[in-house]
Protein backbone atom coordinates (compact mmCIF):
# COMPACT_ATOMS: atom_id res chain seq x y z
CA UNK A 1 0.00 0.00 0.00
CA UNK A 2 2.77 2.39 0.92
CA UNK A 3 4.40 1.51 -2.37
CA UNK A 4 1.30 2.51 -4.23
CA UNK A 5 0.84 5.86 -2.58
CA UNK A 6 4.47 6.86 -2.69
CA UNK A 7 4.58 8.34 -6.19
CA UNK A 8 1.46 10.33 -5.57
CA UNK A 9 2.97 11.80 -2.43
CA UNK A 10 6.11 12.70 -4.26
CA UNK A 11 4.06 14.58 -6.82
CA UNK A 12 2.11 16.53 -4.22
CA UNK A 13 4.86 18.62 -2.58
CA UNK A 14 5.82 20.23 -5.87
CA UNK A 15 2.15 21.09 -6.38
CA UNK A 16 2.29 19.89 -9.91
CA UNK A 17 -1.01 21.02 -11.37
CA UNK A 18 -3.25 18.02 -11.75
CA UNK A 19 -3.94 18.49 -15.49
CA UNK A 20 -0.26 18.10 -16.34
CA UNK A 21 -0.01 14.75 -14.69
CA UNK A 22 -3.16 13.75 -16.49
CA UNK A 23 -1.61 14.67 -19.82
CA UNK A 24 1.40 12.51 -19.12
CA UNK A 25 -0.82 9.67 -17.97
CA UNK A 26 -2.96 9.80 -21.09
CA UNK A 27 0.14 9.96 -23.22
CA UNK A 28 1.25 6.68 -21.67
CA UNK A 29 -2.14 5.01 -21.71
CA UNK A 30 -3.55 5.93 -25.12
CA UNK A 31 -1.22 3.85 -27.30
CA UNK A 32 -2.66 0.70 -25.76
CA UNK A 33 -6.13 2.01 -25.02
CA UNK A 34 -7.02 3.04 -28.57
CA UNK A 35 -6.24 -0.34 -30.17
CA UNK A 36 -8.10 -2.11 -27.36
CA UNK A 37 -11.14 0.11 -27.89
CA UNK A 38 -11.05 -0.17 -31.69
CA UNK A 39 -10.18 -3.84 -32.11
CA UNK A 40 -11.47 -5.44 -28.94
CA UNK A 41 -14.16 -3.49 -27.08
CA UNK A 42 -15.68 -2.08 -30.27
CA UNK A 43 -15.99 -5.41 -32.09
CA UNK A 44 -17.46 -7.00 -28.99
CA UNK A 45 -20.21 -4.37 -28.81
CA UNK A 46 -20.66 -4.59 -32.58
CA UNK A 47 -20.97 -8.36 -32.22
CA UNK A 48 -23.62 -8.02 -29.55
CA UNK A 49 -25.47 -5.66 -31.89
CA UNK A 50 -25.17 -8.11 -34.79
CA UNK A 51 -27.04 -10.70 -32.75
CA UNK A 52 -30.17 -8.59 -33.27
CA UNK A 53 -29.78 -8.32 -37.05
CA UNK A 54 -30.10 -10.60 -40.06
CA UNK A 55 -26.48 -10.05 -41.13
CA UNK A 56 -25.23 -12.60 -43.66
CA UNK A 57 -21.99 -12.94 -45.51
CA UNK A 58 -21.77 -11.85 -49.12
CA UNK A 59 -25.22 -10.33 -49.25
CA UNK A 60 -25.97 -7.24 -51.28
CA UNK A 61 -29.14 -6.17 -49.47
CA UNK A 62 -28.55 -3.99 -46.45
CA UNK A 63 -28.50 -5.67 -43.07
CA UNK A 64 -31.68 -5.05 -41.12
CA UNK A 65 -32.63 -5.01 -37.48
CA UNK A 66 -34.77 -8.01 -36.63
CA UNK A 67 -35.19 -7.64 -32.89
CA UNK A 68 -35.13 -10.84 -30.92
CA UNK A 69 -35.94 -13.01 -33.93
CA UNK A 70 -32.57 -14.78 -33.83
CA UNK A 71 -33.14 -15.67 -30.22
CA UNK A 72 -36.62 -17.07 -30.74
CA UNK A 73 -35.21 -19.11 -33.63
CA UNK A 74 -32.41 -20.24 -31.37
CA UNK A 75 -34.85 -21.40 -28.69
CA UNK A 76 -36.32 -23.88 -31.17
CA UNK A 77 -33.01 -24.93 -32.66
CA UNK A 78 -32.64 -28.37 -31.10
CA UNK A 79 -29.33 -28.94 -32.88
CA UNK A 80 -27.86 -25.94 -31.13
CA UNK A 81 -29.11 -27.02 -27.72
CA UNK A 82 -27.71 -30.51 -28.33
CA UNK A 83 -24.42 -28.85 -29.03
CA UNK A 84 -24.84 -26.68 -25.96
CA UNK A 85 -25.43 -29.73 -23.79
CA UNK A 86 -22.33 -31.38 -25.24
CA UNK A 87 -20.43 -28.20 -24.47
CA UNK A 88 -21.51 -28.35 -20.82
CA UNK A 89 -20.63 -32.04 -20.51
CA UNK A 90 -17.26 -31.33 -22.09
CA UNK A 91 -16.54 -28.27 -19.93
CA UNK A 92 -17.48 -30.04 -16.68
CA UNK A 93 -15.86 -33.29 -17.78
CA UNK A 94 -12.61 -31.49 -18.39
CA UNK A 95 -12.62 -28.91 -15.58
CA UNK A 96 -13.42 -31.20 -12.65
CA UNK A 97 -10.90 -34.04 -13.25
CA UNK A 98 -8.38 -31.46 -14.33
CA UNK A 99 -8.71 -29.67 -11.02
CA UNK A 100 -8.24 -32.79 -8.90
CA UNK A 101 -5.37 -34.10 -11.01
CA UNK A 102 -3.66 -30.73 -10.98
CA UNK A 103 -4.20 -30.39 -7.24
CA UNK A 104 -2.56 -33.76 -6.67
CA UNK A 105 0.35 -32.82 -8.89
CA UNK A 106 0.76 -29.41 -7.26
CA UNK A 107 0.83 -30.99 -3.79
CA UNK A 108 3.43 -33.49 -4.98
CA UNK A 109 5.55 -30.80 -6.58
CA UNK A 110 5.39 -28.86 -3.34
CA UNK A 111 7.08 -31.75 -1.50
CA UNK A 112 10.80 -32.17 -1.74
CA UNK A 113 10.99 -35.17 -4.05
CA UNK A 114 13.70 -36.20 -6.42
CA UNK A 115 12.63 -35.90 -10.09
CA UNK A 116 10.61 -32.86 -9.09
CA UNK A 117 12.48 -30.72 -11.61
CA UNK A 118 11.60 -33.18 -14.37
CA UNK A 119 7.95 -33.20 -13.41
CA UNK A 120 7.92 -29.40 -13.29
CA UNK A 121 9.44 -29.20 -16.75
CA UNK A 122 7.11 -31.84 -18.19
CA UNK A 123 4.05 -30.31 -16.58
CA UNK A 124 4.69 -27.22 -18.67
CA UNK A 125 5.02 -28.98 -22.03
CA UNK A 126 1.32 -29.11 -22.93
CA UNK A 127 1.12 -25.38 -22.27
CA UNK A 128 3.80 -24.50 -24.78
CA UNK A 129 2.46 -26.68 -27.58
CA UNK A 130 0.14 -25.28 -30.24
CA UNK A 131 -3.36 -26.65 -29.71
CA UNK A 132 -3.33 -27.95 -33.25
CA UNK A 133 -0.25 -30.02 -32.50
CA UNK A 134 -1.81 -31.34 -29.28
CA UNK A 135 -4.76 -32.47 -31.37
CA UNK A 136 -2.55 -34.10 -34.00
CA UNK A 137 -0.47 -35.79 -31.33
CA UNK A 138 -3.49 -37.37 -29.68
CA UNK A 139 -4.85 -38.44 -33.05
CA UNK A 140 -1.66 -40.46 -33.34
CA UNK A 141 -2.19 -41.90 -29.87
CA UNK A 142 -5.80 -42.83 -30.63
CA UNK A 143 -5.14 -44.08 -34.16
CA UNK A 144 -6.98 -47.39 -34.56
CA UNK A 145 -4.05 -49.24 -36.20
CA UNK A 146 -0.86 -47.30 -35.63
CA UNK A 147 -1.83 -45.78 -32.28
CA UNK A 148 -0.13 -46.60 -29.02
CA UNK A 149 -3.37 -46.81 -27.04
CA UNK A 150 -4.78 -49.83 -28.84
CA UNK A 151 -1.38 -51.48 -28.85
CA UNK A 152 -1.02 -51.01 -25.10
CA UNK A 153 -4.51 -52.37 -24.49
CA UNK A 154 -3.63 -55.39 -26.65
CA UNK A 155 -0.47 -55.95 -24.65
CA UNK A 156 -2.39 -55.79 -21.42
CA UNK A 157 -5.03 -58.15 -22.82
CA UNK A 158 -7.71 -55.51 -22.31
CA UNK A 159 -8.82 -55.06 -25.89
CA UNK A 160 -11.46 -57.78 -25.47
CA UNK A 161 -14.57 -56.17 -26.94
CA UNK A 162 -13.19 -54.60 -30.07
CA UNK A 163 -9.69 -54.94 -31.42
CA UNK A 164 -8.55 -51.90 -33.38
CA UNK A 165 -11.16 -49.65 -31.83
CA UNK A 166 -11.44 -46.25 -33.45
CA UNK A 167 -11.76 -44.06 -30.37
CA UNK A 168 -12.42 -40.77 -32.11
CA UNK A 169 -15.11 -42.04 -34.48
CA UNK A 170 -16.97 -44.29 -32.07
CA UNK A 171 -20.31 -42.80 -31.04
CA UNK A 172 -19.76 -43.80 -27.42
CA UNK A 173 -16.03 -43.16 -27.13
CA UNK A 174 -15.54 -39.89 -29.05
CA UNK A 175 -16.61 -37.48 -26.31
CA UNK A 176 -14.73 -39.24 -23.47
CA UNK A 177 -11.68 -39.46 -25.74
CA UNK A 178 -11.61 -35.72 -26.46
CA UNK A 179 -12.28 -34.97 -22.79
CA UNK A 180 -9.11 -36.86 -21.84
CA UNK A 181 -7.18 -34.68 -24.28
CA UNK A 182 -8.77 -31.58 -22.80
CA UNK A 183 -7.69 -32.60 -19.31
CA UNK A 184 -4.16 -33.26 -20.52
CA UNK A 185 -3.88 -29.97 -22.38
CA UNK A 186 -5.08 -27.81 -19.50
CA UNK A 187 -3.02 -29.40 -16.73
CA UNK A 188 -0.16 -26.85 -16.76
CA UNK A 189 -2.07 -23.63 -16.13
CA UNK A 190 -4.08 -25.27 -13.38
CA UNK A 191 -1.05 -26.88 -11.75
CA UNK A 192 1.03 -23.71 -11.89
CA UNK A 193 -1.78 -21.62 -10.43
CA UNK A 194 -2.39 -24.09 -7.60
CA UNK A 195 1.33 -24.35 -6.96
CA UNK A 196 1.43 -20.57 -6.68
CA UNK A 197 -1.54 -20.72 -4.33
CA UNK A 198 0.28 -23.24 -2.15
CA UNK A 199 2.93 -20.62 -1.46
CA UNK A 200 0.27 -18.75 0.52
CA UNK A 201 -0.18 -21.64 2.91
CA UNK A 202 1.31 -20.61 6.25
CA UNK A 203 4.08 -23.08 7.07
CA UNK A 204 4.05 -22.44 10.82
CA UNK A 205 0.37 -23.29 10.99
CA UNK A 206 1.07 -26.55 9.22
CA UNK A 207 3.78 -27.45 11.67
CA UNK A 208 1.65 -26.46 14.63
CA UNK A 209 -1.20 -28.63 13.40
CA UNK A 210 1.23 -31.49 12.95
CA UNK A 211 2.45 -31.06 16.53
CA UNK A 212 -1.13 -31.30 17.71
CA UNK A 213 -1.31 -34.67 16.03
CA UNK A 214 -3.46 -33.70 13.05
CA UNK A 215 -3.18 -36.28 10.26
CA UNK A 216 -2.34 -35.39 6.68
CA UNK A 217 -5.97 -35.17 5.59
CA UNK A 218 -6.97 -32.98 8.54
CA UNK A 219 -4.03 -30.69 7.96
CA UNK A 220 -5.06 -30.38 4.32
CA UNK A 221 -8.67 -29.60 5.26
CA UNK A 222 -7.95 -27.12 8.00
CA UNK A 223 -4.71 -25.45 6.96
CA UNK A 224 -3.97 -25.95 3.27
CA UNK A 225 -7.43 -25.72 1.77
CA UNK A 226 -8.55 -22.43 3.36
CA UNK A 227 -5.42 -20.73 2.06
CA UNK A 228 -5.72 -22.36 -1.35
CA UNK A 229 -9.42 -21.83 -1.82
CA UNK A 230 -9.44 -18.42 -3.53
CA UNK A 231 -6.94 -19.60 -6.14
CA UNK A 232 -8.84 -22.86 -6.59
CA UNK A 233 -12.11 -21.00 -7.14
CA UNK A 234 -10.59 -18.58 -9.62
CA UNK A 235 -8.82 -21.22 -11.68
CA UNK A 236 -11.78 -23.59 -11.85
CA UNK A 237 -14.08 -20.77 -12.91
CA UNK A 238 -11.61 -19.65 -15.58
CA UNK A 239 -11.02 -23.20 -16.74
CA UNK A 240 -14.73 -23.73 -17.09
CA UNK A 241 -15.06 -20.65 -19.28
CA UNK A 242 -12.02 -21.49 -21.38
CA UNK A 243 -13.11 -25.07 -21.86
CA UNK A 244 -16.65 -24.18 -22.75
CA UNK A 245 -15.36 -21.74 -25.38
CA UNK A 246 -12.62 -23.97 -26.73
CA UNK A 247 -12.34 -24.67 -30.41
CA UNK A 248 -9.04 -25.73 -31.94
CA UNK A 249 -8.51 -28.94 -29.98
CA UNK A 250 -11.79 -30.57 -30.92
CA UNK A 251 -11.73 -29.07 -34.41
CA UNK A 252 -8.53 -31.00 -35.05
CA UNK A 253 -9.48 -34.16 -33.16
CA UNK A 254 -12.95 -34.85 -34.53
CA UNK A 255 -14.26 -31.68 -36.22
CA UNK A 256 -17.43 -32.19 -34.20
CA UNK A 257 -18.01 -35.76 -35.34
CA UNK A 258 -19.12 -38.49 -35.21
CA UNK A 259 -22.66 -37.41 -35.93
CA UNK A 260 -22.24 -34.22 -33.92
CA UNK A 261 -21.31 -36.09 -30.73
CA UNK A 262 -18.41 -33.74 -30.05
CA UNK A 263 -19.74 -30.62 -31.74
CA UNK A 264 -19.00 -27.99 -29.10
CA UNK A 265 -21.01 -24.75 -29.29
CA UNK A 266 -18.00 -22.87 -30.68
CA UNK A 267 -17.70 -25.36 -33.54
CA UNK A 268 -21.41 -25.02 -34.17
CA UNK A 269 -21.26 -21.22 -34.22
CA UNK A 270 -18.15 -21.25 -36.40
CA UNK A 271 -19.90 -23.39 -39.01
CA UNK A 272 -22.98 -21.24 -38.85
CA UNK A 273 -20.93 -18.09 -39.44
CA UNK A 274 -18.24 -19.15 -41.86
CA UNK A 275 -19.68 -22.16 -43.63
CA UNK A 276 -23.26 -20.96 -43.98
CA UNK A 277 -22.60 -17.23 -43.67
CA UNK A 278 -25.27 -16.61 -41.01
CA UNK A 279 -23.43 -13.86 -39.13
CA UNK A 280 -26.38 -12.52 -37.17
CA UNK A 281 -27.55 -15.93 -36.06
CA UNK A 282 -24.04 -17.03 -35.07
CA UNK A 283 -23.59 -13.86 -33.04
CA UNK A 284 -26.84 -14.65 -31.24
CA UNK A 285 -25.40 -18.07 -30.41
CA UNK A 286 -22.30 -16.43 -28.98
CA UNK A 287 -24.44 -14.17 -26.84
CA UNK A 288 -26.52 -17.08 -25.61
CA UNK A 289 -23.32 -18.86 -24.63
CA UNK A 290 -22.11 -15.85 -22.64
CA UNK A 291 -25.46 -15.47 -20.90
CA UNK A 292 -25.79 -19.06 -19.78
CA UNK A 293 -22.16 -19.30 -18.71
CA UNK A 294 -22.39 -16.10 -16.69
CA UNK A 295 -25.43 -17.38 -14.84
CA UNK A 296 -23.81 -20.74 -14.11
CA UNK A 297 -20.65 -19.09 -12.87
CA UNK A 298 -22.54 -16.62 -10.71
CA UNK A 299 -24.39 -19.50 -9.06
CA UNK A 300 -21.16 -21.46 -8.61
CA UNK A 301 -19.17 -18.60 -7.13
CA UNK A 302 -22.02 -17.41 -4.93
CA UNK A 303 -22.55 -20.94 -3.64
CA UNK A 304 -18.87 -21.41 -2.91
CA UNK A 305 -18.49 -18.09 -1.15
CA UNK A 306 -21.58 -18.71 0.95
CA UNK A 307 -20.31 -22.16 1.87
CA UNK A 308 -17.29 -20.32 3.19
CA UNK A 309 -19.40 -18.28 5.61
CA UNK A 310 -21.29 -21.29 6.87
CA UNK A 311 -18.21 -23.06 8.03
Amino acid sequence: MTLATAPRRSAAPGRTPAPRRDHATWFLVLPALIPILVLSVGPLLYGIGLAFTDAQSGRTRATGFVGALNFTDLLHDTLFWDSFRIGLVWALGVTVPQFFLALGLALLLNVNLRLRWLARALAIVPWAMPEVVVGIMWRLVYHPDAGILNETLRDLGLSGTGDGRDWLSGLATALPAVIVVGVWAGMPQTTVSLLAGLQNVPKELHEAAAMDGAGAWRRFRTVTWPALKPVALAITALNFIWNFNSFALVFVLTDGGPGGRTRLPMLFAYEEAFRYGQFGYAAAMGLAMVAVISILLAVYLAGRLKGDDDR
Binding site: L44, G47, A55, L238, M266, A269, A273, A283
Partner: peptide, 13 residues
Protein backbone atom coordinates in the same frame (compact mmCIF):
# COMPACT_ATOMS: atom_id res chain seq x y z
CA UNK B 1 -12.16 -10.39 -22.55
CA UNK B 2 -11.36 -13.90 -21.32
CA UNK B 3 -14.99 -14.80 -20.83
CA UNK B 4 -16.42 -13.99 -24.25
CA UNK B 5 -16.48 -16.73 -26.87
CA UNK B 6 -14.26 -15.79 -29.80
CA UNK B 7 -17.11 -16.18 -32.26
CA UNK B 8 -18.69 -13.04 -30.85
CA UNK B 9 -15.51 -11.10 -31.60
CA UNK B 10 -14.40 -12.69 -34.83
CA UNK B 11 -17.54 -11.93 -36.85
CA UNK B 12 -17.42 -8.17 -36.28
CA UNK B 13 -13.62 -8.19 -36.62
Amino acid sequence: SQAFPLVLVIIPL
